[in-house]
Design a protein around this nucleic acid. Structure first.
Lengths: 213, 213
DNA sequence: GGATTAGATGAAGAAAGCTTCAGGTTTGGA
DNA sequence: TCCAAACCTGAAGCTTTCTTCATCTAATCC
């Protein structure tokens, strides 16, 4: 499954000359734009190509099929966010709960808000069959990093870290989504950051039990 | 938009005889089954009809088009959940925070778990263009009920109830979704209930400020 | 029991979109 | 300058799916 998936979605040709590099980037950007403007239902390869200023044939030289196009967009975005979260978790090892939460929330929200248009556009394709796989894969990566981090928190122990992390992760991702979908004004984003820290920290404080070192 | 939407999605014919009532129910059930088995991408009207044991023509006598079929399924489910939440909120007016949270969480989780297959199947179509509208509409209903309830909590005041509720709502819905998507074993569901109460109550306790009556 | 209405059928028309491929253009090195 | 490789084009084939409608069967009422 894994190999087949890679074969089905891997690019046909890697850009060599500069112009094709430009072309691929134009296609990627056009994918997002079309997704935002017309929605997933009405995203067609022809329309994406048109928007990118190239012909359909060109699109098919770099992506073996339509799903690969969407898959690639989602993959790029998700791994960027996943990396940011993992990095934040690594940096907060052995810190007290509060900075841990703050670091992770900050990293996640920042990563999502860097390109709000991309984040928004991709929600709709994340529910596609192949998208789900990616979301789950990267989600697991993030949750594992979170769990590992939490276990190093001094003075606290969690009964079931996996579950606790799942709850926290669900809250963080969906609250961020809600803010994105309601416009993501700077004020909203500021509130989101603050309230997410409150929520997660409050939860962890209730959920964890004191531990004697 | 509202009228047109109603026209486009409203049934063509209302069942009169008993046998057609059975037919419509079979179609509704088949929709869920096909959604679960094949996914939204490969849900076709022909397949649904086949699964329901009727012909396509019959399906089209009760639903003007494919989207109406999905819309109807989602609508039924969402309003059932929405009603449950509204009822719970009404019942907990003027109660302390803890029972409020408990009541709402219980009601929501119960409603979602009553038919886990339906809940699961519908996530994929909630992101359809028309689905989003419904989700938002019912979501707003739920959030308003929650806000109204919270404002009657004795001894607490919230700076920005709307935002607080949005956070809580996002956490509740997505944590439930995560549990559903990972199988929703009875043990998991029990933990979900408990942890959601912890999370929400912890958050509200941190977020609210004491109020002198 | 005959007429009227409700319900069911499924082949076929129509539309839409994905993908290919034969042939053209541009680039860059020899 | 010339050629091979990289790149681009877009009309057309192919497939898939939605939706209709002429026709048939079953139920209901008088």
């Amino acid at each position: 499954m894994r190999t087949q998936e890679l074969r089905e979605f891997s690019p046909r040709k890697t850009p060599v000359q500069a112009r094709s590099g430009v072309t691929v980037e134009a296609i990627q950007e056009a994918t997002i734009q079309v997704l935002l403007e017309h929605g997933r239902e009405r995203l067609t390869t022809t329309r994406v190509a048109e928007r990118a200023g190239v012909s359909v044939g060109t699109l098919y030289q770099y992506y073996p099929n339509k799903r690969a196009l969407l898959f690639s967009a989602l993959e790029q975005h998700l791994s960027r966010v996943g990396d940011a979260v993992e990095r934040a978790c690594r940096e907060q090892l052995h810190q007290p709960l509060e900075p841990m939460v703050k670091g992770v929330v900050e990293a996640f929200v920042d990563a999502k808000m860097e390109r709000t248009d991309i984040s928004l556009a991709l929600y709709s394709i994340a529910s596609e069959l192949d998208g789900e796989v990616l979301v789950r894969r990267i989600g697991t990566r993030g949750r594992n990093a979170l769990a590992t981090m939490l276990e190093t928190a001094p003075g606290v122990r969690f009964e079931n870290v996996q579950f606790t992390v799942m709850m926290m992760f669900a809250a963080i991702t969906n609250a961020t989504r809600a803010v994105l979908e309601s416009g993501a004004s700077p004020k909203m984003v500021r509130m989101l950051r603050r309230e997410l820290v409150l929520l997660c920290h409050g939860y962890l404080a209730c959920s964890g039990t004191p531990k004697l070192e």
